[in-house]
Each structure stands twice: as C-alpha cells, then as structure tokens.
Amino acid sequence: MSIFDIAVTTISGENTTLAPYKGNVLLIVNTASQCGLTPQYKGLQELYERYRDKGFTVLGFPCNQFAGQEPGSEAQIAEFCERNYGVSFPMFAKIDVNGPDTHPLYQHLKAHAPNGEEQDIEWNFGKFLLDRNGNVVKRINPRVQPEELASDIEALLQA
C-alpha cells in the first residue's frame, strides 16, 4: 500500500486520503496546542509559505498522547492554529501515533523510516520528511526547528 492510499480525516471532518498530495515533498508532523514546542507552528507555516508553490506541503496531525497537550476538539484546534500562528497548511483530525490504536499513517511512517527507525514517536512535533513519491527520507526529532529543514526540503524539491 502506498502512503497516498491511506485514509485520513481532515480537521473539518471530511474523509479523504493523502492522494491529493502525490507528487509533493511532504513534511508530516504530529502537533499539539499546549506544548513547549507549539511555537514550531510558526516555523512550519513559514516553510509552507516559502515552498508550497514549488511542490511542498506540511501536513499536521494533532495528537493528545503526550501529557494531554492537545485536549481540544478539532474545531478548537483549527481555530487556535489559525488565530495564533496563521496556519494555512492542511490539518487533520486528532490521531494516535503510538500504542494499540496507532493510526495506519503512523504505522506506515514508522515502518518505512530509513535506518530501521521504527520506534515510537518521542513527543509532539516529531517530523517525517517524504520525497515526491511518498518515500520516507528522514525521521526528524521533535526538537529540531522547522527552519533547520530548509536545505533538506530544497534538495528534495530539486531532485
């Protein structure tokens, strides 16, 4: 199964897949609104604005598995992200990224990460960078700031 075939739900409740993003370089991030790393939304939005016209997309997947730092409803999350960080990149419904209810997207991402990095997601704002064919190129620690990924993104956009 391709990553583009995986069923997801948008933050507004629409059932879809990742097929609309086929051909784009993707940065998939598990997010949270009440985390010390929440200001990364600003950097993620800046990356999205800087590279979206070149075929780059950030996909945000809220998750409440880390210290309950994403307790709100999808509507509250969407409003928070837009109001505080001007988020316009695609956001999705809350999911689990670890444990028995891990969403199929995160099962896929962890299973296909380079260097056999199949371990659990460490915290909010863990990132996966994917090439235009949906291959996981890099798994990125939550503490890595979005702006630090610019050269990796540029290389994938030019590949």
Rank of each mutant, 00 (worst) to 15 (best):
71 P>C: 07
112 H>K: 13
93 A>G: 05
142 P>E: 05
156 L>V: 08
73 S>M: 02
127 K>T: 08
151 S>A: 15
84 N>H: 14
14 E>Q: 15
87 V>L: 07
125 F>T: 03
81 C>K: 01
89 F>M: 02
70 E>Q: 11
134 G>L: 10
30 N>V: 03
11 I>G: 00
105 L>W: 04
73 S>K: 07
135 N>L: 11
91 M>N: 13
151 S>G: 10
51 Y>M: 11
124 N>I: 09
142 P>K: 07
21 Y>P: 05
46 E>A: 15
126 G>M: 11
107 Q>L: 12
95 I>R: 01
63 C>A: 15
142 P>C: 07
64 N>W: 01
154 E>K: 09
126 G>Y: 00
112 H>N: 15
49 E>V: 06
74 E>C: 14
147 E>W: 03
15 N>Q: 14
61 F>C: 04
56 F>N: 06
21 Y>H: 15
122 E>A: 15
153 I>P: 00
115 N>Y: 08
135 N>E: 09
156 L>C: 08
39 P>L: 09
74 E>M: 04
98 N>V: 14
21 Y>K: 03
94 K>R: 11
17 T>M: 08
135 N>P: 03
12 S>N: 12
65 Q>S: 08
20 P>K: 10
56 F>E: 06
89 F>L: 02
157 L>W: 07
86 G>M: 05
47 L>I: 13
11 I>A: 01
72 G>K: 00
13 G>Y: 04
124 N>W: 01
151 S>M: 08
100 P>K: 13
159 A>C: 07
127 K>C: 04
141 N>R: 12
130 L>K: 00
